[in-house]
Design a protein around this nucleic acid. Sequence first.
DNA 1: GCCGTTTTCGGCCCGACTGTTTTCAGTCG
Length: 598
Amino acid sequence: MSQPPSSPPPGEDPAPPGGDRAARDPTNAEIAQALDELADLYELDGAVIHRVIAYRNAARAIREAPVSVAALARRGRATELAGVGRTIQEKVLALADEGAIPALVRLRGKFPAGLVEITRLPGLGPRRARRLFDELGIDSPEKLRRAAQEHRIRQLRGFGPRAEEAILAALAGRERERGERRVVLDRALAIAEPLLEALRAHPAAERVELAGSARRMTDSVRDLDVIATAAEPLALARAAAALDLVESASSPTASGVRLRTHSGMPVELRIVDPEQYGNLLQHLTGAKQHNLALRELAVRRGLHVSEYGVLDDASGQMHRCATEAELYALLGLDYIEPELRENRGELEAARAGTLPRLIELADLRGELHCHTTASDGTASIEEMALAARERGYEYLAITDHSATMGFGSRVSPAQLREQIARIRATEIEGIRLLAGSEVNILPDGSLDYEDALLGELDWVIASVHSSFRMPAEAMTRRIIRAIEHPLVDAIGHPSGRKIEQRPPYQFDLQRVLEAAAATGTMLEINSNPDRRDLDETSARAAAAAGIPLVINSDAHRPGAFAVARFGIATARRAWLTAEQVANTRSWEQVAALRPRNR
DNA sequence: GCCGTTTTCGGCCCGACTGTTTTCAGTCG
């Protein structure tokens, strides 16, 4: 998961120039990084594993928190985060006030940095790394390589020739993997969906479904999990291995096969008895943290959950579940949608019966962000309107770029007046066209058109398209100034992130949310699969602050309205209901929500 | 170190695999 927008990546200058905050608090990302490092070092130090896990859980909770955890800790309220207790709150305060956590300083002195790197190698964990350090003085990958080549490792009890081979292979693999990236979800689904279709078409196949992180609709994925039931399992596994899009495969068995597609995507196909389908589907859908918490919850009820079933201590009976709903019900939980399975409170809500009714694609009634040939789109107003109507939308805002956009994309004030006239003159039955603009937010926070011209538009979305690398304080003020402009209806792709490409701009999300909540300015969830911006944690915080969200495609061609599924996925991962998203309403209702009408 | 539908103390997921071992610890997903 990417860093929250309020947390600049380490290594970049985070100090606000002339900042009005005397001492800069550590960002959530910095705190989380320190706690993760502490967990690694405690693990090497031989601490009880549950203590290590506690630090990692706290690091995750802090990384995902929508507000400044340092500020929270100063008020003694960081312990309200699940997984943060008094001890870790004190460590957060030490980091904020003294600039360092004493235990971290001490452990850094005890274990060289290269040792942690060694624990990350596949096949080597903290216990084995520690023995290599204690008994052979190995504290870097380079020393490890030499020791393996000189056959010194096999002298250690518990290590043998195979261990040396594995270490050398792991060191080589580590260099290869540096270029290996996660695949953005739309590309992953473009591989998965034809694969699922091909498997479903096979005569031996009964049910075939996507599991794993792709089913949860995460921003990006590393691999694909597919689960199936089949009349003839071995036949289906063999057929899978023989598909055109498969480059290589393990030897197929009745329980499945591991594949690699020509695009390099690893795919695991698992074939299971129909009676256990729910168990395996749940198990493979994850996330890991969700499954872990689910099993802990089950143990408190005397139940043990595995991919094979639910074992009841009292009766000794193994319950098999054909569906996930049965499995959750057995544990006293409402069914949990895959997008929510991240251990972000969904288990507690499922137990209390308070899970939200998540927004669906069909709830969207209009689209409020698209481009035409007037700026950098590829289609006319009419072509975009027809495509939007085809999707069942009742209204469409045409929002081309503004005057300072790059060559070929800019729309001068005069051109915008012409464009408004064209939009007003275009009548297409069944869909209402709105004259809009995606106006640049200039570095000082002012907008790209005069207010008089903006006032002629039905819908104004303001976005940052330049000077991404401003210091956080300046960027925060820039965005807030745009939010406070009475003619700005929404902020487009508010964090500026590109998934697997670039981090968000540095800005203070909390202050931006406060400003939007105060003015009624809406925030966009941009559905472009490379953006999905706001991200799920920020969008959840925005909705909690009472800010209306808009889910937009930012389509530059008619076919691109289909990316709405990714914006919906992010909204669902943000726990959003249809009510919290403005464009699930009629245009009249959206118009009434605009800041200018408040 | 955290936490509470048996608990403020005593727990804290589950199973498969691997290499090295004659019964299992460590790692992984």
